[in-house]
Amino acid sequence: MLLINNTSTNAYFNLAMEEYFLKNTTEDIFMLWRNESAIIVGKNQNTLSEINYEYVKENKIKVVRRQSGGGAVFHDLGNINFTFISCNDNSFSDFKRFTMPIIDALENLNIYAEFSGRNDLLIDNQKFSGNAQYNYKNKVMHHGTLLFSSQINDLSSALKVKPSKFQGKSVKSVKSRVTNISNHLEKNMTVLEFKDYLMNFINSKDKNNHSYELSKQDVNEINILVDEKYNTWQWNFGHSPKYALNNEIKYPGGNIELSLNVEKGLINEIKFFGDFFGKKDVTYIEDLLKNVKHNEISIKTTLSSMDINDYFLNCNIDTLVDGIMGAK
């Protein structure tokens, strides 16, 4: 098995790296990697309904869709991600098999973890790892999170969203009580020391294991995948299932209630209601926004040539756009 100790902390690159090796390897692979602050959403989720839009925008948190299903997770540098790619293997849904090496590695440190439910690892009934899988031809990719010293408050804030705003058929995330591995260690360890420990532990289990360093060609191909897919609005947001959003904007000029439908990432209908004043009819804006991408840049560009005050007295474009995006 090839062992890849990836040092990149760019979420776009790291998710692309998984797909690249899944589709281009003939050997089994084990990878360890970390991301700077990012929300990773499941393949079948509505991205906007999983994130706290204001918090993500303010803190410049990357939002990236992965290949596998399941719920949204928050990554930071206190979280370690592990990936197994198993070739000639169609054992999809055998989550326990791929998590046992992690459980064994923790037991070696006198930390007793257990597999629970569909895809979680627990310590003292608190979750520290969520797992997901994806099949490609005759291969299976299993990946999971390992909360080591993550900022739990950031995790909670980034994923907090008012569920009543969104209606649709996307898979919803399940919230759980969480813990960090570092809280259960007998001796202090940094996150990088633990990452090295885990890689060494996996390496020691099979004499045929050997390290692999990414080549220049690997990096170039992965970066192409980043540019064409993982760093695009279309993949991360536009790929969401069709959904409806209902929101209310409270501002000095009154209240604006809005309702919109989105399909394939495009607004196909939007309606404004409320006690606001305006000298021009808002149906003009409603018509203007049809078939516009449901993202901040596209909406601002569409509305930039008009005076929002003509339609919503004492409102500004930033307030209106944030509301259309689902912010409070």
Results as ranks from 00 to 15, higher is better:
93 S>R: 15
54 E>Y: 03
239 H>E: 15
25 T>H: 14
21 F>D: 00
3 L>C: 01
249 I>Q: 00
151 Q>W: 10
295 N>C: 15
134 Y>A: 08
269 E>Q: 08
32 L>Q: 00
297 I>S: 06
59 N>A: 10
207 K>S: 04
33 W>A: 05
139 K>C: 06
276 F>L: 11
73 V>K: 04
264 K>L: 10
12 Y>N: 00
63 V>G: 04
170 S>H: 08
166 F>M: 08
133 Q>N: 13
148 F>D: 05
297 I>L: 08
176 S>I: 09
49 S>H: 05
204 S>G: 05
274 G>D: 07
71 G>Y: 03
87 C>N: 10
271 K>Y: 06
320 L>R: 01
89 D>E: 12
282 V>R: 08
103 I>C: 11
102 I>C: 03
304 S>I: 01
205 K>P: 01
155 L>Y: 06
14 N>L: 06
53 Y>V: 15
231 N>M: 10
12 Y>K: 06
103 I>D: 04
29 I>M: 08
241 P>H: 11
130 G>W: 05
223 N>Q: 02
132 A>T: 15
206 D>V: 01
143 H>Q: 07
108 N>W: 00
96 K>E: 08
256 I>W: 00
249 I>E: 03
5 N>F: 02
145 T>C: 13
286 E>I: 12
297 I>K: 11
101 P>M: 07
31 M>A: 13
209 N>R: 13
274 G>W: 01
310 D>H: 13
230 Y>M: 01
316 N>D: 05
132 A>H: 07
8 S>P: 15
184 H>Q: 11
155 L>H: 09
58 E>Y: 05
59 N>E: 09
158 A>C: 14
327 A>Y: 10
238 G>T: 14
14 N>C: 04
160 K>Q: 10
105 A>W: 04
